[in-house]
Amino acid sequence: MFLNFLIQRKNVSPVIKLNRMYYINNFNSDKDNLSLIYKWIAELEIPTTIISQLHLKLIVNEGFINACNASRNKFERINIILNVSDKSIEILVTDIGKGFKVDHHQGNFPSKMIGKTYKLFTQPIEELMVSVIDNNCIRFFCNKREGEIAKLLESNRGLLSMLKISDVVEYHYSKNSLNYLYVELNNK
């Protein structure tokens, strides 16, 4: 699997293959590494027609923080992989946590959940939902709703903000390897 090939390479970027650019880096799962990540992103030459620096920074930031929160300590490595073509960008952020919890199930989902949708949490004007794609993959989406602004939550905005920028946001669980958040944007 190309993901496994990429994550074995350390701090090598970019990799050029079939008119695509692969950027990869990895960091300890310590939130204090955000400054290093911002510096790395600022140095990448990714066309702004595909994604703005601001949006890329936000997606990578939120993905990295989710991965940090899933880590058991600050020394686990988090890989960030960008796969860029002239028409799209794919962003992968790995973690080795237990996976997302959906309807009391975490990680490997039972087959009866496949194809069903679940609510993860509710903010005053939107809800974060997931569809279970297969035993190891969930896809996020957002539902608009009416609600009182006064009931704003202080947390749980990262994935909702990613959904406003991206075409696909998924989480892939792997029992014996790395889990990863997958974000895809297509140039429209």
Binding site: Y38, L54, L58, E62, I65, L152, L153, E154, S155, R157
Partner: peptide, 19 residues
């Protein structure tokens, strides 16, 4: 020049305290 969801959490907390 940049605020993430954690930063917004701090701002929302301050807004709620002020209100």
């Amino acid at each position: 020049n940049f605020i993430d969801s954690s930063g917004f959490g701090a701002i929302i907390s301050a807004l709620k305290t002020a209100k």
